[in-house]
Computed example of a mutant assay.
Amino acid sequence: MDYSPRPALQGPTFVRLLARLTDAEAARAALVPADRLSEWIDWTRAVALSKVLDARPAAADTPATPSAHDPTAACARVRATLAQAIASAPELATPQSVTPSDHADPGDTASDAAPDFAPLRQRCLTLQRAMQAATGRLRGELREALAQRSAQAARLAEVDAVMEGALAPRESALLGAVPMLLEAHFERLRAAAADSQATAHGPWLDGFRRDMQGVLSAELDVRFQPVEALLAALRAP
Protein backbone atom coordinates (compact mmCIF):
# COMPACT_ATOMS: atom_id res chain seq x y z
CA MET A 1 0.00 0.00 0.00
CA ASP A 2 1.30 3.45 -0.94
CA TYR A 3 1.60 5.68 2.12
CA SER A 4 3.19 8.61 0.29
CA PRO A 5 1.80 11.88 1.63
CA ARG A 6 -0.86 13.66 -0.39
CA PRO A 7 -0.33 17.28 -1.38
CA ALA A 8 -1.95 19.70 1.03
CA LEU A 9 -5.42 20.77 -0.05
CA GLN A 10 -6.37 24.34 0.59
CA GLY A 11 -9.98 25.22 1.36
CA PRO A 12 -12.66 25.07 4.03
CA THR A 13 -12.31 22.56 6.86
CA PHE A 14 -15.25 20.63 5.41
CA VAL A 15 -13.47 20.06 2.10
CA ARG A 16 -10.13 19.28 3.73
CA LEU A 17 -11.73 16.67 6.00
CA LEU A 18 -13.38 14.90 3.08
CA ALA A 19 -10.14 15.08 1.10
CA ARG A 20 -8.30 13.41 3.97
CA LEU A 21 -10.84 10.60 4.15
CA THR A 22 -11.27 10.09 0.42
CA ASP A 23 -9.56 11.14 -2.78
CA ALA A 24 -8.27 14.71 -2.55
CA GLU A 25 -8.88 15.59 -6.18
CA ALA A 26 -12.40 14.13 -6.17
CA ALA A 27 -13.28 16.11 -3.09
CA ARG A 28 -11.81 19.24 -4.61
CA ALA A 29 -13.80 18.85 -7.82
CA ALA A 30 -17.07 17.95 -6.13
CA LEU A 31 -17.17 20.13 -3.05
CA VAL A 32 -15.49 23.48 -3.67
CA PRO A 33 -18.39 25.70 -4.77
CA ALA A 34 -16.34 28.89 -5.14
CA ASP A 35 -14.21 27.32 -7.86
CA ARG A 36 -17.26 26.68 -10.06
CA LEU A 37 -19.58 29.51 -9.08
CA SER A 38 -19.60 31.09 -12.52
CA GLU A 39 -20.83 27.81 -14.03
CA TRP A 40 -23.80 27.54 -11.68
CA ILE A 41 -25.59 30.84 -12.18
CA ASP A 42 -27.52 30.56 -15.45
CA TRP A 43 -28.56 33.59 -17.44
CA THR A 44 -32.01 33.87 -15.89
CA ARG A 45 -30.54 33.96 -12.39
CA ALA A 46 -27.83 36.35 -13.57
CA VAL A 47 -30.47 38.72 -14.94
CA ALA A 48 -32.43 38.57 -11.69
CA LEU A 49 -29.28 39.28 -9.68
CA SER A 50 -28.34 42.15 -12.00
CA LYS A 51 -31.76 43.74 -11.57
CA VAL A 52 -31.43 43.65 -7.81
CA LEU A 53 -27.92 45.11 -7.87
CA ASP A 54 -28.78 47.82 -10.41
CA ALA A 55 -32.06 48.92 -8.88
CA ARG A 56 -32.13 52.38 -7.34
CA PRO A 57 -32.45 52.24 -3.55
CA ALA A 58 -35.93 53.00 -2.36
CA ALA A 59 -36.53 56.00 -0.18
CA ALA A 60 -35.64 55.33 3.42
CA ASP A 61 -38.61 54.24 5.46
CA THR A 62 -39.31 55.16 9.02
CA PRO A 63 -37.06 52.92 11.14
CA ALA A 64 -38.91 49.89 12.38
CA THR A 65 -39.60 49.52 16.06
CA PRO A 66 -36.85 47.35 17.58
CA SER A 67 -38.05 43.81 18.12
CA ALA A 68 -37.69 41.99 21.40
CA HIS A 69 -36.65 38.97 19.36
CA ASP A 70 -32.87 38.46 19.47
CA PRO A 71 -31.87 36.89 16.13
CA THR A 72 -28.31 36.19 17.29
CA ALA A 73 -29.51 34.20 20.28
CA ALA A 74 -32.13 32.41 18.19
CA CYS A 75 -29.54 31.35 15.60
CA ALA A 76 -27.16 30.24 18.34
CA ARG A 77 -29.87 28.05 19.87
CA VAL A 78 -30.65 26.41 16.54
CA ARG A 79 -26.99 25.79 15.85
CA ALA A 80 -26.43 24.33 19.32
CA THR A 81 -29.40 22.02 18.85
CA LEU A 82 -28.05 20.75 15.53
CA ALA A 83 -24.55 20.32 16.96
CA GLN A 84 -25.99 18.32 19.84
CA ALA A 85 -27.93 16.13 17.42
CA ILE A 86 -24.67 15.30 15.66
CA ALA A 87 -22.80 14.67 18.89
CA SER A 88 -25.53 12.48 20.41
CA ALA A 89 -26.55 10.44 17.35
CA PRO A 90 -26.85 6.85 18.63
CA GLU A 91 -25.30 5.40 15.48
CA LEU A 92 -22.19 7.49 16.09
CA ALA A 93 -21.80 6.68 19.77
CA THR A 94 -18.71 4.73 20.72
CA PRO A 95 -19.83 1.59 22.55
CA GLN A 96 -18.59 1.15 26.08
CA SER A 97 -16.70 -1.98 26.99
CA VAL A 98 -19.05 -4.66 28.27
CA THR A 99 -18.44 -7.73 30.36
CA PRO A 100 -20.26 -11.01 29.95
CA SER A 101 -23.35 -11.27 32.15
CA ASP A 102 -25.21 -14.23 33.54
CA HIS A 103 -28.18 -13.60 31.25
CA ALA A 104 -26.08 -13.36 28.07
CA ASP A 105 -26.55 -16.15 25.58
CA PRO A 106 -23.15 -17.68 24.78
CA GLY A 107 -24.44 -18.55 21.34
CA ASP A 108 -25.50 -14.99 20.57
CA THR A 109 -23.16 -13.67 17.90
CA ALA A 110 -25.21 -10.60 16.90
CA SER A 111 -22.61 -8.27 18.35
CA ASP A 112 -19.97 -9.94 16.17
CA ALA A 113 -21.93 -9.43 12.96
CA ALA A 114 -20.27 -7.30 10.32
CA PRO A 115 -21.38 -3.68 10.72
CA ASP A 116 -23.63 -2.24 8.04
CA PHE A 117 -23.40 1.30 6.68
CA ALA A 118 -27.18 1.55 6.07
CA PRO A 119 -28.11 2.98 9.50
CA LEU A 120 -25.18 5.37 9.31
CA ARG A 121 -26.32 6.56 5.88
CA GLN A 122 -29.84 7.14 7.17
CA ARG A 123 -28.55 9.11 10.15
CA CYS A 124 -26.35 11.21 7.87
CA LEU A 125 -29.30 12.01 5.60
CA THR A 126 -31.53 12.83 8.57
CA LEU A 127 -29.00 15.25 10.02
CA GLN A 128 -28.36 16.86 6.64
CA ARG A 129 -32.08 17.45 6.12
CA ALA A 130 -32.37 18.96 9.57
CA MET A 131 -29.47 21.32 8.85
CA GLN A 132 -30.91 22.31 5.48
CA ALA A 133 -34.38 23.00 6.87
CA ALA A 134 -33.12 24.96 9.88
CA THR A 135 -30.67 27.16 7.97
CA GLY A 136 -33.21 27.85 5.23
CA ARG A 137 -35.77 28.98 7.80
CA LEU A 138 -33.22 31.16 9.58
CA ARG A 139 -32.15 32.83 6.34
CA GLY A 140 -35.76 33.69 5.55
CA GLU A 141 -36.32 35.17 8.99
CA LEU A 142 -33.10 37.20 8.85
CA ARG A 143 -33.96 38.55 5.41
CA GLU A 144 -37.32 39.72 6.74
CA ALA A 145 -35.54 41.45 9.61
CA LEU A 146 -33.10 43.12 7.20
CA ALA A 147 -35.93 44.34 5.00
CA GLN A 148 -37.23 46.34 7.97
CA ARG A 149 -33.90 48.06 8.61
CA SER A 150 -33.24 50.27 5.60
CA ALA A 151 -33.38 50.38 1.83
CA GLN A 152 -29.78 49.19 1.55
CA ALA A 153 -30.41 46.36 3.98
CA ALA A 154 -33.51 45.38 2.04
CA ARG A 155 -31.44 45.23 -1.15
CA LEU A 156 -28.94 42.93 0.58
CA ALA A 157 -31.83 40.70 1.63
CA GLU A 158 -32.99 40.53 -2.00
CA VAL A 159 -29.49 39.65 -3.18
CA ASP A 160 -29.31 36.83 -0.63
CA ALA A 161 -32.69 35.50 -1.73
CA VAL A 162 -31.61 35.45 -5.39
CA MET A 163 -28.30 33.78 -4.55
CA GLU A 164 -30.00 31.17 -2.40
CA GLY A 165 -32.40 30.34 -5.22
CA ALA A 166 -29.55 30.15 -7.73
CA LEU A 167 -27.20 28.01 -5.66
CA ALA A 168 -29.56 25.84 -3.61
CA PRO A 169 -29.94 23.11 -6.28
CA ARG A 170 -26.18 22.86 -6.76
CA GLU A 171 -25.53 22.92 -3.02
CA SER A 172 -28.06 20.15 -2.51
CA ALA A 173 -26.46 18.00 -5.21
CA LEU A 174 -22.93 18.52 -3.90
CA LEU A 175 -23.73 17.94 -0.25
CA GLY A 176 -25.77 14.94 -1.32
CA ALA A 177 -22.46 13.32 -2.26
CA VAL A 178 -21.30 13.31 1.36
CA PRO A 179 -23.01 10.01 2.32
CA MET A 180 -21.42 8.29 -0.68
CA LEU A 181 -17.97 9.62 0.21
CA LEU A 182 -18.43 8.49 3.80
CA GLU A 183 -19.59 5.05 2.66
CA ALA A 184 -16.48 4.65 0.51
CA HIS A 185 -14.35 5.55 3.55
CA PHE A 186 -16.32 3.07 5.68
CA GLU A 187 -15.80 0.25 3.17
CA ARG A 188 -12.06 0.91 2.93
CA LEU A 189 -11.69 0.79 6.70
CA ARG A 190 -13.77 -2.37 6.95
CA ALA A 191 -11.76 -4.07 4.21
CA ALA A 192 -8.49 -3.12 5.88
CA ALA A 193 -9.77 -4.52 9.18
CA ALA A 194 -10.75 -7.77 7.48
CA ASP A 195 -7.33 -8.09 5.87
CA SER A 196 -5.68 -7.67 9.26
CA GLN A 197 -8.16 -10.13 10.85
CA ALA A 198 -9.41 -7.42 13.20
CA THR A 199 -12.76 -7.77 14.93
CA ALA A 200 -15.90 -6.57 13.16
CA HIS A 201 -16.49 -3.98 15.87
CA GLY A 202 -13.08 -2.56 16.65
CA PRO A 203 -11.00 0.61 16.67
CA TRP A 204 -11.59 1.12 12.94
CA LEU A 205 -15.33 1.50 13.48
CA ASP A 206 -14.89 3.88 16.39
CA GLY A 207 -12.51 5.90 14.23
CA PHE A 208 -15.06 6.03 11.43
CA ARG A 209 -17.73 7.30 13.80
CA ARG A 210 -15.43 10.12 14.88
CA ASP A 211 -14.63 10.91 11.25
CA MET A 212 -18.32 11.06 10.35
CA GLN A 213 -19.09 13.34 13.28
CA GLY A 214 -16.24 15.61 12.22
CA VAL A 215 -17.51 15.83 8.64
CA LEU A 216 -21.08 16.58 9.73
CA SER A 217 -19.89 19.22 12.19
CA ALA A 218 -17.85 20.85 9.43
CA GLU A 219 -20.88 20.72 7.11
CA LEU A 220 -22.86 22.51 9.81
CA ASP A 221 -20.25 25.28 9.74
CA VAL A 222 -20.58 25.57 5.96
CA ARG A 223 -24.37 25.71 6.04
CA PHE A 224 -24.30 28.44 8.68
CA GLN A 225 -21.97 30.74 6.73
CA PRO A 226 -24.84 32.61 4.96
CA VAL A 227 -26.69 32.84 8.28
CA GLU A 228 -23.65 34.37 9.95
CA ALA A 229 -23.27 36.83 7.09
CA LEU A 230 -26.88 38.00 7.44
CA LEU A 231 -26.44 38.30 11.21
CA ALA A 232 -23.36 40.47 10.63
CA ALA A 233 -25.40 42.70 8.32
CA LEU A 234 -28.09 43.04 10.99
CA ARG A 235 -25.51 44.01 13.60
CA ALA A 236 -23.94 46.64 11.36
CA PRO A 237 -24.81 50.24 12.31
Results as ranks from 00 to 15, higher is better:
Tyr3Val: 13
Arg6Gly: 05
Arg6Gln: 10
Ala8Thr: 15
Ala8Lys: 13
Ala8Tyr: 13
Ala8Glu: 14
Pro12Asn: 13
Pro12Leu: 05
Phe14Pro: 02
Phe14Asn: 05
Arg16Cys: 06
Leu17Val: 04
Leu18Arg: 03
Leu21Arg: 01
Leu21Ser: 02
Arg28Lys: 06
Ala29Arg: 15
Pro33Arg: 11
Glu39Phe: 06
Trp40Asp: 09
Trp40Tyr: 09
Ile41Cys: 02
Val47Met: 02
Ala48Met: 02
Ala48Ser: 11
Ser50His: 11
Leu53Cys: 08
Leu53Asn: 06
Ala55His: 05
Pro57Phe: 12
Ala58Ser: 12
Ala60Ser: 12
Asp61Glu: 08
Thr62Lys: 11
Pro63Ala: 06
Pro66Cys: 00
Ala68Ile: 02
His69Met: 11
Pro71Ala: 12
Cys75His: 03
Cys75Asp: 06
Val78Trp: 04
Arg79Asp: 13
Leu82Phe: 01
Ala83Asn: 08
Ala85Val: 11
Ile86Glu: 01
Ser88Phe: 08
Ala89Tyr: 03
Leu92Phe: 08
Pro95Glu: 13
Pro95Asn: 09
Val98Met: 15
Pro100Tyr: 15
Asp102Arg: 11
Asp105Met: 04
Pro106Tyr: 13
Asp108Val: 15
Ala110Pro: 12
Ala110His: 12
Ala110Ser: 13
Ser111Tyr: 11
Asp112Glu: 10
Ala114Pro: 08
Leu120Asp: 01
Arg121Val: 00
Gln122Ala: 15
Arg123Gly: 01
Cys124Leu: 08
Cys124Gln: 07
Thr126Trp: 02
Gln128Thr: 09
Arg129Thr: 15
Met131Glu: 03
Met131Cys: 01
Gln132Lys: 12
Leu138Pro: 06
Arg139Pro: 04
Arg139Phe: 04
Gly140Met: 08
Glu141Ala: 10
Leu142Val: 03
Arg143Glu: 00
Arg143His: 00
Ala145Lys: 14
Leu146Val: 02
Ala147Asp: 14
Arg149Tyr: 05
Ala151Pro: 04
Ala151Phe: 06
Ala151Ser: 15
Ala151Val: 02
Val159Leu: 12
Ala161Gln: 13
Val162Glu: 06
Met163Tyr: 08
Pro169Asn: 09
Pro169Ile: 10
Arg170Pro: 07
Glu171Tyr: 15
Glu171Lys: 11
Leu174Arg: 15
Gly176Ser: 06
Met180Ser: 09
Leu182Gly: 05
Leu182Asn: 09
His185Val: 03
Arg190Gln: 06
Ala191Leu: 05
Asp195Val: 11
Gly202Ile: 03
Phe208Arg: 03
Asp211Ser: 14
Asp211Phe: 02
Gly214Ser: 12
Glu219Val: 06
Glu219Ile: 03
Asp221Gln: 09
Asp221Ile: 10
Phe224His: 05
Val227Glu: 01
Leu231Met: 01
Leu231Val: 00
Ala233Cys: 06
Ala236Lys: 10
